[in-house]
Each structure stands twice: as structure tokens, then as C-alpha cells.
Amino acid sequence: MSEVLVLIDHVDGAVRKPTYELLTIAKRFGEPSAVYIGPAGQAADVTEKVKKYGAEKVYVVDDAQVKGYLVAPKAEVLQQVAEKASPAAILIPSTSEGKEIGARLSIKLKSGLITDAVDVQPGDGGPVATQSVFAGNFTLTGKVTQGTPIITVKPNSAAPEEAAGAGTVEEVTPTISDAAKGAQIVASQPRKASGRPELTEAAIVVAGGRGTGGDFTPIEGLADALGGAVGASRAAVDSGWIAHTFQIGQTGKTVSPQLYVANGISGAIQHRAGMQTSKTIVAVNKDEEAPIFELVDFGVVGDLNTVLPAATEEITKRKG
């Protein structure tokens, strides 16, 4: 069976959940080989983690030469690993950096790229990827017809399945060109952990918009009662009430949770683009004409400042 390369998504060696989803998907059409580009000191720990999800091989690339630069050196690393492994496919997490790594790699390997897949299944002549396009109004299936399929996959596209893999370590010393070092990371400020689930990975998202008037306490209260993440519309972000990383929509994050609760959000097309594929949609809005109600499974016409705190209290009581 051929190898399927999976680029590990991690922060300083802390593996993020989409990695396990990608390994699970990789097993559908080959032997998962995880590619770790990171601090060498964490390699053993990372290997232990990914082999539990079926990684047969782990390519370990010390990032001494890579960190400090954006995208291009990582694309060179993947190119060199791919040339060695001749994989059946390359799966990359669909983060903004992941997509750009895929883009450069696509040109280097003269291979087709599919971005933002929400599912990948084996098909005749290679993996078939599903994408959601036009603000979630269309579903599209497609495949790569030239070279090695390179597919970036969104979080929550598969349920991670544990499977014992050999986890054979292969160290790779890449050659990084000077040209790839043209864009340097001058400063980096890691985001403060909110203590809540990661927005794009969360099963429940509670979001607030302009209708919050700037007070996100009712939103956070409900999110915490349900164990969910907090999100926002662009209007709330532009007003400076919440950081841009929490924005959901066309120019923010796309989420596809089991439950999405929109509060004080009108439901503009650009917002829908980021949440329309959520499984269950609930809205609280004081305007019964708000377009968000066209999408909902359940809606409350009311003031979020009274409805949310009361609901939060009832939920907390029920949970006991």
C-alpha cells in the first residue's frame, strides 16, 4: 500500500486535533505517514501521539532551519519528503498557513490542489474530496487529475479513530533554499488561551453580534453552560468588542458544529458563509424579520439580554 502524507498540525509540539482526523482519513486509502516539522525535543512525544491514530511512519524534521519563516520552507520540506515517499496523496490541515503551503507545493510538484475539503473518500483514480462553496449553498465533489493529490482538509471532517500504527521514525534533514527564507517572522505573540474549546473544532458554538451592544457576558454564560466556544459577527469585531480571531464568516472562520447559536446577529450572506453548514442552528433575535430565522431549526424572537441569562440558569439547573 502507498503512503499517504499527513502534515502534523501542532503548536510547539502540542498536537492539535485535526491531525488525528487527517490520519483517520489517510487510512482510507493508504498507510498514514505523519510529517512532523517542529522542535526536535518534542519529536518522541509527538510520535507517541500520532502512532495511536495509525501513523506507520513519522518523518521528523527539526525546525531549526524552518522556524522563523513563513510557508515557503515548509513547502520545500514537504516537496523533499514527497519525492522520497512517492505518496498516494498529501493531506494538509486547512489553516491559512496550510493552504498556502499546499499552494506552493502544488506548483513545485505540478500536482493538483483541492482546498477546504469537508470530506475525502476513496474513488476510482484517487481520492474524491467534498467542498462546500458559495456561502455553503452548494456542495461540490472533485478530484485531482494531475500529479499527487494535495488536499487541505477542514477541522471536524472526520471523527478521529484510534488505530495502532508502527510509528517508525525517519529523520529528514531538508535543504532549505535562501529564496525560501525571504519572509521572516519578526515577532510573534501567541494567543492567550480562552479556556474554551477551539472555535473551529468545537461541537457547540455560541455567537454574538451587534445586538449584544458590546456586552458579551450573556454569550459567554451560555457558551460555558453548554461547554461551547464563543464566536462573533464582523459587526461585533469591527466595533472592537471582541478579537478578530473569533469572527465567523467569509473573512473569518468557517465553523460546522453540531449546534450553532446566533444571538443578535441578522444573518448577512457573509456571516452565513461561515456557519451555514452547522448541523443544528438556533437564533435569538428581537426582530422577527431577521434573515437568520430563515436558517434556523429553532428561533426565539426576544431580547438576548433576558433570554440568554434565563436559559443559562435553566440549563445549569438541569445539569445539576
Binding site: V300, V301, G302, T306, A311
Partner: peptide, 14 residues
């Protein structure tokens, strides 16, 4: 879609 009246919205939502 329900209309909130005197707390009915929160109960229905829950």
C-alpha cells in the same frame, strides 16, 4: 420560531 413572553422563550429554548 417562538416569541418570548415573560420568560417563555428561555424555557422553550432550554
Amino acid at each position: 420560531i417562538v416569541k418570548d413572553e415573560d420568560g417563555s422563550g428561555a424555557t422553550a429554548l432550554t
